[in-house]
Amino acid sequence: MSAPDTEPSLGGLLRHMRVAVAAFAALLVGLGAIVVLGVVAPSSASSVIMLVLLAAMVATVLLFSMEVPQEPPLTRFFSGLGFAWVAILVGMTLLDYFTR
């Protein structure tokens, strides 16, 4: 099956997706780091670092794959709102467990 003239080669398509390819690479690196820290060479500080890495990966998906910065302000607000509410849910429930 040959593409019509207007359609680019694979390289041409990827040239329009530089940000996405960079995000893809960053996510794979983050995954690798989490696996190394948590499975191959765990240490006492691993958990904290892994949570930071997770936050970075979540931010990568939101900012680059889902293009939040190009959305109107309202959508940006929504994407942050969800995580703020998760923080309320988890934070206040754990407050109970830590003060028993």
Partner: peptide, 14 residues
Amino acid sequence: WGHHMFVNGIGTGA
């Protein structure tokens, strides 16, 4: 929401 749970053993601080 915790005010529905004062007597079920939740932490005093919470």
